[in-house]
């Protein structure tokens, strides 16, 4: 569907679609969960292409974080726009996720 996925040094790097909203959140959530469970639990979600996200979209990344931490891993966010960052700040989710300016920094942070 709308997620793109690759692996880099054992880390799953996932890019979210341009819009992540109620209409596609269910599929995205299932796909992200499948990627995480098939991997190491170390995940970078790149939001560079994501221009619009509603609360259903937020629930997708929260579910991803929970799945990753269940595997003793983590899920880092990278490359979010100012508007998406404002949404994370409004909902206080910026206190839950580690957020990086770019994907490379997020991947490197896993060590």
């Amino acid at each position: 569907m709308s997620l793109t996925h690759r692996q880099e040094n054992g880390i799953d790097v996932v890019s979210l679609p341009e819009r992540l909203v109620m209409a596609n959140a269910g599929d995205a959530r299932a796909e992200l969960k499948q990627i995480i469970q098939a991997g190491s639990g170390r995940v970078v979600v790149n939001l560079g292409d994501t221009e619009f996200m509603d609360s259903s979209g937020l629930a997708v990344v929260v579910a991803g974080l929970q799945a990753a931490r269940k595997m003793d891993g983590d899920l880092y966010l990278a490359q979010m726009s100012d508007t998406i960052r404002a949404l994370f700040e409004l909902t206080r989710l910026h206190t839950v996720f580690q957020i990086f300016d770019d994907e490379t920094a997020a991947v490197r942070a896993f060590g």
Binding site: D54, S55, L58, V62, A63, L65, Q66, L87, L90, T91
Partner: peptide, 18 residues
Amino acid sequence: APAAPDASGGRGWQIIRA
């Protein structure tokens, strides 16, 4: 009201009222 930071949902009305 703000949802718990790690809650799966419950953010819609927070966004509407903001």
